[in-house]
Amino acid sequence: MNFTLKIWRQKDAQSKGAFKEYKVENVSSDTSFLEMLDILNNDLVHKGEEPVAFDHDCREGICGMCSLHIDGHAHGPSQAVTTCQIYMRQFKDGATITIEPWRSAAFPVIKDLVVNRSAYDQILQAGGFVSVRTNSVPDGNAIPIPKADADESMDAAACVGCGACAATCKNGSAMLFVAARVSSLAKLPQGRVEGARRAKAMVAKMDELGFGNCTNTGACQAECPKQISIAHIARLNREFLAAKLKD
């Protein structure tokens, strides 16, 4: 398969970036998208050119490290997968593919397609944890948790913190990420204890870092590789408003 790639190139955070076109030829249809970029970079290195910088790590959809806005979609055109899980057979032979970094004021570009997502780490550090002493691992049946609650908590905990939600949202809002973290802990007894403090601290940090205001478009859940539901945003709203009204 042959492709024309329009890739955002930017030397560093201070420089102005621009799109540059590249051709990749004779790529197997079973090549993954990131392997295709590896092939391109191999060619560029052989030609003595600067390779394209892009984030990746596990390449099996669990670490949340890969990003990329591909043809208008966070993590490419497929649903419920990360960029590392898409393959070139999902594109038309001869297609022009536009590859951009996440666009959000809170995720500044470091180089080419790599953005600084440490804002999410800072939100987690503000309250996305359990600080009460829970001692050693209790017996599995010692703390009864309704199946529905455990399922909701696990669904929210599937968030890999890739940043696709804020990158997709027209408002640059991080609400789906914050909601998933608050929800996954709020539905469990150990996390429930600090629910009010957590919601207030994480929302305050999210606002401080310059993320936008959620307008409930639902674009975040449509593009989320882990299909986190905006129902968690409703729970975050409840948690936060209840905590503030009790102050």
Binding site: G72, T98, E100, R103, A105, G172
Partner: peptide, 14 residues
């Protein structure tokens, strides 16, 4: 929200 979106917009949107 416009400020949070950043100065550079996506070239392709859907």
């Amino acid at each position: 929200n416009r400020k949070a979106r950043g100065n550079v917009r996506y070239a392709v949107t859907v």
